[in-house]
Amino acid sequence: MPLMTQRPRTVFRKLDGILLLDKPRGLSSNQALQRVRHLFRAAKAGHTGSLDPLATGLLPVCFGEATKIAGGLLGARKAYETVARLGVVTDTDDADGQPLRERPVPELTIARIDAALQALTGCIRQRPPIYSALKRGGEPLYAKARRGEVVQVEEREVEVHAFELRSAADLLDGLLADGAPLLRLHVECGSGTYVRSLVRDLGEALGCGAHVAELRRLWVDPFREPRMWTLEALQALAERGERSLDACLLPIEAGMAAWPEVRVAAAQALRLGQGQAVEGEFRPAGSVAIVDETGRALGLGEVGADGCLRPQRLFAWAAQQVAPIRA
């Protein structure tokens, strides 16, 4: 028998930074994460907010110490472009699911569509999809649904900043083109909002049902105009060497714009790095990004009502601050 050749094991390395990945369709967020982690040989990596396998677009990937700010990016405002297919409801609320029922699409006007979109904008109550990564009893709901278990999902409050019609080329005053009845929509929303649920509820409001046919994430705060990298582009850079690949990474500071900045002196940085609070009149109260006198990020902290700054999640180098030399 011919000997089986084994692929060499990846030797991981310490790497810090943020990659703005353009996730391809067909991969889960974790599958995409593992591919780029092995490509960069990063010892530690995490993504900030899952995208469905059907979805494409921006998936920020945090390497190394950047994983300490990933939780803050999860709650950031996001924007999507989606295509709604009217007349068909699926069990997953998207095109990857099985059709549950079909209904004729009634005559629709732009005014009626806009009114239905407006009703789903603002602070609304939303029922997440049964096939979702939400956990119950430590297990994702989609795992229970795939086993055929009856899954009850409670409504929750979400924020939809914008839900707008971009194109209705296949639906104009009830005149359908030869293709499927489609609506191209723009969504801006806060944490925990499911675009699949928005499209599902829009379909019900229009009296015909709907599901997501396409979904692309355009941006995530603070990356409003992202330079995204595809897996193919990253692979090509990797073949040119790791220095070319690493040039794609953003510094950790690029992901910290959501937190108010607090600048500390060298002695204060040393104290924080030792896990101690720093008294003073720091502002504003709440979570803050701590930077040293050179502008380098030291991590996240908390300013109390008393103006005292306390360390929360500091980066490894914050504990390596050198004590100032005394004359």
Rank of each mutant, 00 (worst) to 15 (best):
E65F: 02
K68T: 03
A66K: 05
A116D: 03
V105C: 00
T48R: 01
T90I: 13
R85G: 07
L74A: 08
R85H: 14
T82G: 12
A115Y: 02
G64E: 05
A55Y: 09
T48F: 01
F63I: 07
R85E: 15
V61M: 12
A79K: 09
G49W: 07
L59A: 08
L58D: 01
Q98P: 10
I69S: 10
V105W: 04
T56N: 08
G87V: 12
A119S: 11
R101P: 09
C62S: 03
A45T: 03
P60Q: 14
R112L: 02
A116K: 00
L120M: 00
D114R: 14
A55T: 07
R112F: 00
A115C: 03
I69T: 09
L54H: 07
G75E: 11
A84W: 03
V89M: 09
I110G: 15
A45S: 11
A95W: 08
P104T: 04
E107V: 14
T56G: 10
T56E: 13
I113R: 03
I69W: 03
E81G: 13
L86M: 08
Y80R: 03
V105H: 02
V83P: 05
P60E: 14
L73R: 02
G72Y: 13
K44M: 11
R85I: 07
C62A: 06
L86E: 00
A45H: 01
L117I: 00
E107F: 13
R103Y: 09
G97A: 06
A84Y: 02
K78F: 01
C62G: 04
A70N: 02
G46S: 11
L100Y: 09
A119V: 06
G64Y: 03
A115L: 03
A79R: 12
L108D: 01
G75C: 07
I110F: 14
R101N: 08
S50L: 09
A43I: 11
G87D: 09
A111N: 14
A95Q: 11
V88R: 13
A43T: 12
